[in-house]
Amino acid sequence: MKKILLIDDSDTYTWCLQKYLQHRGYPVKTACTLKEARAAIQEEMPLVVCCNLDLPDGSGMDFLNEVRAADKELPFILASCHDKDDYEQEAMRRGATLCMDKMKGLLLQDKLVEYAYRQLSGEPDSTFHKLLFVHAEDTSAGALQAAMLQKGLDLILVSSIGEAKCRIFEDEEIDLILCDLELPDGTAMELFHTLRRVAGMFQMKNPPVRLLPFFILTENNDLATEYEYRHEGVNDYITAPVNIPELIRRVLFFVE
Rank of each mutant, 00 (worst) to 15 (best):
P46E: 06
K130R: 14
T12R: 01
P207R: 09
Q42H: 01
Q145N: 02
E44I: 02
S10A: 11
N243R: 02
C81W: 00
M100N: 07
K151S: 14
L21W: 05
H231G: 02
A240I: 00
L55E: 01
Y13K: 08
A143L: 10
E73C: 06
D11N: 10
V67P: 15
F63E: 00
M204V: 13
A199C: 12
R197T: 08
L5E: 04
E114K: 14
S126Y: 09
L195S: 04
V251R: 05
L223F: 10
L178Q: 10
N235K: 10
S140M: 08
L17E: 06
K72I: 14
C179A: 06
E228C: 00
Y20V: 12
L17G: 03
A240L: 00
V28F: 06
I216L: 08
P75N: 08
R68K: 09
G152K: 12
I177N: 13
A164S: 03
D171N: 15
F254K: 04
L153H: 07
E43A: 07
V234C: 04
R94V: 07
F254A: 03
A146T: 07
K111I: 09
F133M: 01
I41S: 05
D9M: 00
L74Q: 05
I248L: 06
D86Y: 08
D54P: 01
Y13W: 07
S121R: 05
A39L: 06
K130L: 13
Y13N: 11
V67Y: 10
C50Y: 11
M204R: 15
R118F: 12
A224V: 09
D101Q: 10
I174R: 07
C16W: 01
A31Q: 04
S159L: 02
P184V: 12
E256R: 15
C99G: 11
F76Q: 06
L178E: 11
K151C: 09
L53R: 03
D71L: 05
R167H: 08
L78A: 07
E73I: 08
S160K: 04
S126M: 13
L195P: 01
L176K: 07
F214A: 10
G105P: 13
R68A: 02
A164M: 03
Y13M: 09
C51Y: 05
K84P: 15
Q203I: 04
G142R: 03
H129R: 13
N206I: 15
L6C: 07
L21C: 06
F128C: 09
A143W: 09
S80T: 05
D85S: 11
V49D: 05
V251I: 15
P184W: 14
K3A: 06
V134H: 01
E173C: 14
L155I: 12
M148T: 12
A39W: 00
K205H: 13
C32D: 00
Y115T: 05
